[in-house]
């Protein structure tokens, strides 16, 4: 089996996830895009595990671990999103701008 096909699929899927993270406004959609990126990585791990086929099966085991981590991440992420929603009544990422530089304060210095 040619190694390039699954690997290229994983790369493209990862890029799609990158686009989603950068372009989507809704926090839940951002989370979904993160899941896409994680899955692309998983595909890579499985493919290379099959290629080397060593005794430890590190690739597949790590895939399982990543799946578990993704689940935990989604749980926490959603909790955060809900908290933000409860406080701000919005989950739009580009409207959460508390981090921005205070213009007046900067000008006064």
């Amino acid at each position: 089996m040619h190694l390039v096909y699954p690997v290229v699929i994983a790369a493209v899927l990862f890029s799609v996830g990158v686009y989603g993270v950068l372009a989507r406004r809704n926090a839940i959609l951002v989370l979904m895009s993160v899941e896409l990126m994680l899955n692309a990585v998983n595909l890579n791990l499985v493919v290379f595990d099959m290629r080397w086929a060593d005794r430890l099966h590190g690739g597949q085991v790590l895939t399982l671990f990543v799946i578990v981590l993704a689940a935990a991440e989604v749980g926490l992420g959603l909790a955060l999103v809900l908290l933000i929603y409860r406080n701000r009544q919005t989950v739009d990422v580009d409207r959460l701008r508390t981090l921005h530089e205070d213009r007046e304060e900067g000008a006064r210095q």
Binding site: V21, L22, A23, V93, D94, L96, R97, T98, L99, H100, E101
Partner: peptide, 11 residues
Amino acid sequence: TENGNPQTYIS
């Protein structure tokens, strides 16, 4: 560039 939008930062 410090506009507070995390998406810009990640970009």
